[in-house]
Design a protein around this nucleic acid. Structure first.
Length: 119
DNA sequence: AAGTTGACTTTCG
DNA sequence: TCGAAAGCCAACT
């Protein structure tokens, strides 16, 4: 793991160089997603004027603890890797449209739950 | 400065 | 519909 974090000063805000960086913008968009709706990593990246879908994932992996990370899923409709069970609890509580697969898994119905911040 | 990694996306078979 | 490969972007070493 390369991103094992060496300086969490970003959250402390004692570094002005990170006041409006990629990280902050991603958190803003994710926090703006209403309950019962979801956005793909690519959509979040596009919302901030970028295409770094993976970059969004990096931010979520570290700062996700402060935002509704479960509302950010993959373009395939699958929830966040290694946290599907956790996300499912939130989806059921928020009424997010879910499609259960025959192999015991599940996937979000992007067609219905996809949220587009056109405002 | 260059290389590696990652909670991704899209295209091809 | 599913699986593998290539592509892209940002952050860390």
């Amino acid at each position: 793991m390369a991103r094992s974090n060496s300086e969490p000063s970003r959250l402390a805000g004692h570094g002005p160089s990170t006041s409006d960086d990629f990280v902050t913008r991603v958190l803003e968009v994710v926090a703006a997603i209403p309950a019962g709706r979801v956005m793909t990593y690519g959509d979040v990246a596009a919302a901030i004027g970028s295409r770094a879908a993976r970059g969004v994932g990096q931010v979520m992996a570290y700062y996700g603890s402060e935002v509704p990370w479960w509302r950010v899923i993959r373009a395939s409709g699958h929830a966040v890797a290694d946290h599907e069970a956790e996300a499912l609890q939130h989806f059921r509580a928020e009424g997010t449209p879910i499609a259960h697969t025959r192999d015991g898994g599940y996937r979000v119905e992007l067609r219905r739950a996809r949220y587009v911040p056109s405002v």
